[in-house]
Write a protein that binds this DNA or RNA. Structure first.
Lengths: 194, 194
DNA sequence: CCCGCTATTAGCACTTGGTACTAATATGAG
DNA sequence: CTCATATTAGTACCAAGTGCTAATAGCGGG
């Protein structure tokens, strides 16, 4: 068996990569070699045992939990808020938020922080964005901390409308400005999306 | 020890919840009882053993991997693209994209799909959003499929600027309109963020 | 044809972090 | 004091390994 070994090891690597939950025994059946051979292969390839692999995946998830939660809830951490008036949040730009090519933060993360803050300053989960205008003034890069300040600049409670202006900055320099026209849903008017 | 048992079990539950990676042995030290007591407690509380806990976390992560990847890369799946001209992407709204209260999709997901598409239609990772105007016309709810169509409506290659209009719809009904002023970076001009 | 080399397989002892079960001992309430 | 519950101890066993030694295959070259 002159080639098979290298081939098998490559295949083994791939197989484990896309299903880390496979045991040596299952692999030995898959590749029709003994369990020991699989073990030797893993050694040579420095692939850890099943339990360690699972643990790594789990630890990764567990650590991500903190940073993936805010992706769907409020983006950025709200550090100060006065309902219907103003609010401030901070958002630390991490490698996963930027373009790989130039390390500049993707626009939707800045928007998400600002929009989340605009929603939050209104009133807990009952506000929708109707319109908005955005300006991305300077590129933001990984490692920077973006401070967003939201202010309710106009309120028309009778029409359930309000305008919120959000200014985001890094080191006192403004990087983003957004104005949001918000619609405040009343409890009754909730159920009318097609 | 009349109360301690219930209290310990509650504390045990909490302890395992915020650190699923703890062994019975470590817990027995933490609560100053024997390992067996910890095991009995776990039985009563139907808490699985360490490895099973880790596995659950890992499986969860693994399944999430598919849906968390598009969050940071292109949001939505691009199904057609003509560079510098137009592009189409679809985005299936899932429960994790909506407000819990009213099941309406959070604005930043619609923005992210549109913005990603605007970036994509320009030229591979070298475009930045400068300004944009958005209109959220109708609420989108979980389960719906949003089709976004981007079109380059104006191009000023000499100024490295272009305008892209994105119209998103659900079942032929327009739900979102965004116009994006894009800046196309040249390879040389990349390195100038503070 | 045998020598040598790598690859493969086998076997055993030991490890972690448990389960399952039995039995002994506390401990506190009535 | 007694009974029930709680706790602890101890044993056998399991999965999925590691680590190590040793036997065997397969093959290419001289």
């Amino acid at each position: 068996m002159k080639r098979p070994k290298k081939q098998r090891q490559q295949a083994l690597k791939d197989s484990i990569k896309d299903n880390p939950f496979v045991t040596d025994e299952e692999l030995s059946v898959e590749f029709d070699v003994s369990v020991q051979t699989i073990r030797l292969d893993r050694m040579e390839l420095a692939i850890p045992e099943l339990r360690e692999r699972i643990k790594h995946v789990a630890v990764k998830t567990f650590e991500d939990e903190v940073k993936s939660l805010p992706i769907d809830e409020v983006i950025g951490e709200i550090i100060d808020i006065e309902l219907d008036n103003k609010a401030i949040s901070i958002f630390d730009v991490k490698p996963e938020h930027v373009f790989q090519r130039n390390k500049i933060a993707r626009g939707h993360h800045l928007f998400a922080q600002a929009n989340s803050l605009a929603v939050a300053v209104m009133n807990e989960e009952l506000a929708l964005t109707v319109k908005s205008e955005l300006q991305f003034l300077r590129p933001v890069t990984a490692g920077q901390r973006v401070v967003a300040k939201a202010e309710v600049i106009e309120s028309h409670p009778e029409k359930n409308r309000a305008f919120v202006k959000v200014v985001s900055s890094v080191d006192q320099q403004t990087v983003f400005i957004g104005t949001f026209e918000m619609y405040r849903m009343t409890e009754q008017s909730e159920g009318e999306a097609k």
